[in-house]
Nucleic acid binder design. Structure first.
Length: 443
RNA sequence: CGGAGUGUAGCUCAGCCUGGUAGAGCACCGUCUUCGGGAGGCGGGGGUCGGAGGUUCGAAUCCUCUCACUCCGACCA
């Protein structure tokens, strides 16, 4: 992509409304634009990141055997009356009346809808288990949206729903999601710690929140420092095998959000120099809630013994749009964002320091085409701006690698390669620069 | 929903207290000099001062109402 054609409205000044660093950087880097309180447009740069995160989430879900579908944003109120939540959910639910005066709502979550889909299609225990997910926009009419897309009213969420015959099966489904979440956040370059959590309005009796430690997080959290060094299961993990050792390992140390925090246990179980008491960002939440929805909504299957039973369900959410903010909170410096390679909007920022100089133009065009043919996503700064501005913009948008081509270097046959995360700059031959940038691990 | 603020040019803000022809920096357009870490000169375009009502000879400024946004708290994924 040539920057001269790319819609990238970067801001030099920090917009007044932005308080936390991720919000400021997202606005400055031209990733999002606010439309109303807690409602944002995603501009091209931000949208690229959002899609990359979404794709990693999708791949890790698919690896567990979960299947993707897509449910609508607008739902009929009647389904929510069946579960009893139409009244319980309160003002956070955006209620809509259509032209025929039918009560509708913009979905804040999808338990009712998926249960309806399930019950009308599945009749026998032989058809179980199932785990269905979608990645769809949700709307929750927060009293006070804040922190940019971290607590928006409209947000993109991956939510899935497992259906099992019995509690053992539900436990296996829960464990799969637990492992998939560990892998997902790891691929996104985040250290997310599973913490015992309150179940909230969804209810149920088993729940973990996946928390990224950050001073700007909204939850107070307490955990054992050992978690920071725990090893995440690799891609060869067999989801059909026994996952319980992994779960046991990842729940072996103290970790709780403030709702579930027990100060005396914390002090008894964690040596004082290993105690972490800080704030965190909730990026995922998994629940097991049994028959909470299947029973009132009549989602039953015939068991092997000829007795009809409500299915055992769980639901699992990842805040896809929130993750964009969480990653920035976890990875930035004074100059801007530092994207992990796995979600970077482009892999390389190629800077032509002197547009119009025949040597520079030719070299840059060659590098650009070569990288593109090698499948590397390149953002080429082909503007005729000044060097300082180009460097500042490239640092701000945080691409993993910068290749800087200028007349001074070309005279001695070198270009500069800068690695954003370390700040290390090297002058290399064009070939060596190419190898450095292409050969860099994709995380 | 309680409390506290803020709305003036695309962005950051001054002007408001004490009413009298709407400003600065950045950005943008033209031009010249610059040109490797957010350069400088000259010239230029751009704002019904969030909206409505009121007071006044005269309102960005004072008063009333209203809308929007932000922050703290409660609530929540």
């Amino acid at each position: 992509m040539r920057m001269s054609q790319f819609f990238l409205p970067v801001l030099k000044d920090t917009p007044a409304e932005a308080q936390i660093v991720s919000h400021r950087l997202m606005l400055r880097a031209g990733m999002i634009r606010q439309s109303a309180a807690g409602i944002y447009s995603w501009l091209p740069l931000g949208f690229r990141v959002l899609k990359k995160i979404e794709q990693i989430v999708r791949e890790e879900q698919d690896a567990t055997g979960a299947q993707e579908l897509l449910m609508p944003t607008i739902q009929p109120a009647d389904l929510w009356r069946e579960s009893g939540r139409y009244d319980d959910y309160g003002q956070e639910m955006l209620r809509i009346t259509d032209r025929h005066d039918r009560d509708m709502l913009f979905g804040p979550t999808n338990e009712e809808l998926i249960t309806d889909i399930f019950r009308s299609s599945i009749r026998s225990y032989r058809q179980l288990p199932h785990n269905l997910y979608h990645i769809q926009w949700k709307f929750r009419d927060e009293v006070r949206p804040r922190f940019g897309i971290m607590r928006g009213r409209e947000f993109l969420m991956k939510d899935n729903y497992s259906f099992d015959l019995d509690k053992d099966g539900a436990r296996r489904s829960y464990n799969k999601m637990f492992v998939a979440y560990l892998r997902t956040f790891d691929r996104l370059g985040l250290k997310a710690i599973p913490m015992v959590a309150d179940t909230g309005p969804i209810g149920g009796d088993m729940s973990h929140e996946f928390i990224v430690l950050a001073d700007t997080g909204e939850s107070e959290v307490y955990c054992h420092a050992d978690y920071l060094d725990f090893v995440v299961p690799d891609a060869s993990t067999d989801y059909e095998g026994d996952l319980s050792p992994i779960i046991e390992h990842w729940t072996s140390r103290y970790a709780a959000t403030d709702e579930k925090h027990d100060a005396s246990r914390f002090e008894a179980e964690v040596p004082s120099d290993r105690r972490i008491a800080t704030r965190g960002i909730e990026v995922g939440h998994i629940f097991y809630f049994g028959s909470k929805y299947s029973k009132p909504m009549g989602a039953t299957v015939m068991g092997a013994d000829g007795v009809e039973v409500p299915v055992e369900m769980g639901s699992y959410g990842i805040g896809v749009s929130r993750l964009v903010g969480a990653i920035i909170e976890a990875s930035h410096d004074d100059d801007g964002i530092i994207w992990p390679a796995s979600v970077a909007p482009f892999h390389v920022g190629l800077i032509n320091l002197k547009v119009g100089d025949a040597d520079c133009d030719r070299t840059v065009a060659n590098i650009y085409e070569t990288l593109r043919r090698a499948g590397v996503e390149v953002l080429l700064d082909d503007s005729d701006g000044r060097a300082g501005g180009k460097f500042a913009t490239m640092d701000l948008i945080g691409l993993p690698w910068q290749m800087i081509v200028g007349p001074r270097g070309l005279k001695s046959g070198v270009v500069e390669v800068k690695e954003r995360c370390t700040g290390v700059r090297q002058e290399l031959s064009i070939e060596a620069a190419m190898t450095t940038v292409i050969g860099a691990p994709e995380a």
